[in-house]
Design a binder for these strands. Sequence first.
DNA 1: CAGTTTATTTTGATCGATCTAATCATGCCT
DNA 2: AGGCATGATTAGATCGATCAAAATAAACTG
Lengths: 351, 351
Amino acid sequence: MTEKVTIGDVARLAGVSRQTVSNALNSPDIVREETRQRVLRAVEQLGYRVNQAARQMRTGRSRLIAIRIEPDRDGINGSVLDRFLHGLTESAARSGYRVLLYTADDDQAEVDTFEDLLGAYEPDAFVLTSTHHGDLRTAWLLDHKVPFVTFGRPWSADSASASHAWVDVDGAAGTAAATRHLLDAGHRVIGFLGWPSGSGVGDDRREGWARTLAAAGVDPAGLSRATSDGVADGEKAAHDLLRSDLGVTALVCVSDSLALGALHAARSPGLAWQPGRGPGGGAAERPVAVIGFDDTPVAKAVGLTSLSQPLAQAAAHCVALLTTLLDGQADPGEPPANVLLEPSLVVRQSA
Amino acid sequence: MTEKVTIGDVARLAGVSRQTVSNALNSPDIVREETRQRVLRAVEQLGYRVNQAARQMRTGRSRLIAIRIEPDRDGINGSVLDRFLHGLTESAARSGYRVLLYTADDDQAEVDTFEDLLGAYEPDAFVLTSTHHGDLRTAWLLDHKVPFVTFGRPWSADSASASHAWVDVDGAAGTAAATRHLLDAGHRVIGFLGWPSGSGVGDDRREGWARTLAAAGVDPAGLSRATSDGVADGEKAAHDLLRSDLGVTALVCVSDSLALGALHAARSPGLAWQPGRGPGGGAAERPVAVIGFDDTPVAKAVGLTSLSQPLAQAAAHCVALLTTLLDGQADPGEPPANVLLEPSLVVRQSA
DNA sequence: CAGTTTATTTTGATCGATCTAATCATGCCT
DNA sequence: AGGCATGATTAGATCGATCAAAATAAACTG
């Protein structure tokens, strides 16, 4: 163990009182410059570091941010949270905060954990991910006046009231960009592989595709398929869509999992298309173009064009919003701030 | 915020002193049974939770375990740490500990962070991942008598001295199992795609393959290729190995990244093989079998047979070793304990 | 039944920082 | 020079728990 250096040790060496050391560090402006220097030199010399536990007792602030780590549910998209976590840890550290992890199997368990953590470690704030309709967690936190930010919009009906700070990535803007990219490449009949409607994220992403396609004069009706998230599901849905006689030459997908399945389907015989004509018959076949979402390692590995979420940025914004909340700079009259970031298209071989 | 409930509140309600409440919770055996019940009822009623900061000040124990979260370097193998982290968080919680994250770009930066954290948050222990030759970090922690466990063996020359607790997965046993699986399936000339020698993990995994192949009467010499970790690298190396006239019909790979590359190579024309004869000429071609390592989401997605590390188990063992260290149950005379787990082969289409 | 031992509970101090309020200098104004 | 606002520093209390030691109650012993 490192020998403990307390504020008293520093005070003794600098020849001042404990409080002056504290002031020199926390309210530099009320200490005489020369004294401040002397204190800082002593701090340096002894390698003093403020003890969080002691500070926390007095101030009630732990400088901890808690976040739940999820079991990477479907696997393929699991690394998204991982990258976000990394960004969060870095940004938090830059602002003098540390990240504390916890797990919970469902909303209720998570709320219980809130109570546990607040009683024991007193994190200053929470970051919630995977927000969804009728989220118990946000209600509880608001109710107990615990500061928090969500990574993900509040997808509830009363989102108009915008009752908490959030950061999100604009899925619709992403799929719109993907669709535009395909249109620019000469595609017209562009399909969409999504999740069953009802999930905020999924609906949002579909909307971006539909809007852009319609704007280009193509009716999106009938060009979309919904399925659960999985490679096999994606393959099946893509097959179904490509076999129909609609002349689909490209697919925008709500996730890399579905896109990967679509890629398999697209490479199965008889589903390619010929430039300049409709599908079927002719030379120089071109494979169906596919674009995924999330830019997971899988996408990189198989050359799948995909939409990349600016996760490090999102994390940084979360921390920024939190520090504003915590430092009380937030105007209580103003509605809570929020940030919407645009994903970027990473072009690879698949489109 | 939740209204604060202190040990004093509980004491008042239960009609005893603060210390008795503390005893009832921490040393139940020295409190009269009836009193204990009364205290527990009061605790329940008020929803009391011990304040870690206050406890930490007195006891010097924070009940925090710190671990570094790495930027998922190559991406494809990134989720391994993620899954380990999840397991660690769960196991730690079960033992009354929480996980604190930090980042660091290299060993030196990590050591600096040790000092920071120990001064400020006083984590009770560290869990180190990615141990390697000449690891600065273990030396520093040993030197400062900070409890820690590594996930990964000490790969140093003086590993004989086994100076710290560790948990690891037996890579050699894994590749041995993979090789045996291929032998059982009728393969004889089985190649290996690995990393350049010098990395403990890589050498270990190669060794399991070589040993098993030799035991089956096949000389592994010349059947292995070394390359950096990447899909393209793997494809190139696999091509090279398959094109040689050695008659390789299967490949064991040190990682899923390389295996994915190998899979691509194996599917390129002219590299299949015919059962019952050597490569080239004949009917009923069979693709080259490929086995990867780590069972990443990519493996699952593309149907790659791979070796799965028991990460949740490994994490649980890490916590178990730590609690033994921290609760002082470890016999100081005994050398530190360690655990070696076996990976399991997840068989999919590729082999 | 006094004298001890053992069981149970309580009192007071303490961990290391910060808050509040008090003290001690200075400079300025009339 | 006295009065006073301002600047700089310090003394003492405090956060909530646990430790060490003391106090009290109960049990046992000869």
